[in-house]
């Protein structure tokens, strides 16, 4: 083995080891930071594991938004047409959060079977429906087209 080959061997070994470590770490990080999506029906059926962060999506039920006096705590119901789930959140809701709108909340289950949300997401387009929410609505099958009133466009799902 001449010096050039030896150098190359050392380089390649170091690269393989480092990349291997990086990939392993990335895999672990990925595993720990995945948020599964559930619809209200699945939550009602108790499919959500305890102590795991997850996402729930649905339509905000008309008339269900209740604000706590004195602070920014808010409670609302999400529905997929079949079941409802109660969501608690503290903070400023996104611009496009309103009753009847499709939104996604991220958080954990609490002891009463409600969702304590750490984040509420609403998309910046009045006709846009998060694909997950559309999918959940389709599965529940009770609402024909859940886009905002006055529009006819039904966004395509990913494929």
């Amino acid at each position: 083995m001449n010096p050039k080959q030896r150098n190359r061997l050392i380089l390649i070994t170091v690269i393989v080891v480092c990349v291997g470590i990086a990939v392993t770490l990335a895999g672990i990080a990925l595993k720990e930071n995945i948020n599964l999506f559930y619809n209200p029906t699945q939550i009602a059926a108790g499919e959500v594991p305890k102590d795991a962060s997850f996402r729930v999506g649905g339509l905000v039920v008309e008339g269900s938004v209740r604000r706590n006096p004195g602070d920014l705590k808010v409670t609302f119901e999400l529905t997929d047409g079949a079941e409802q789930v109660t969501v608690h959140y503290e903070g400023i809701l996104p611009d496009l959060f309103r009753e009847g709108q499709g939104i996604i909340a991220q958080g954990r289950m609490n002891a009463e079977g409600h969702v304590n949300a750490s984040e509420v997401l609403a998309k910046h387009d009045e006709t846009y429906m998060p694909p997950e929410v559309q999918d959940a609505l389709d599965k529940a099958g009770n609402i024909e087209d859940a886009a905002a009133p006055g529009t006819s466009s039904k966004p395509a799902k990913g494929y």
Binding site: A22, L25, A26, A29, L30, E32, N33, I34, N35, L36, F37, S53, R55, Q106, P131, E132, D135, G158, Y159
Partner: peptide, 28 residues
Amino acid sequence: LLGTLYPLLIDALEMGKISVGPPYFNSV
């Protein structure tokens, strides 16, 4: 790339819907 495409892949394989949060990207 992994964190961006993984949710799409899982979705395409009908294995559920997931999202990969910023903590993944920050920790890697």
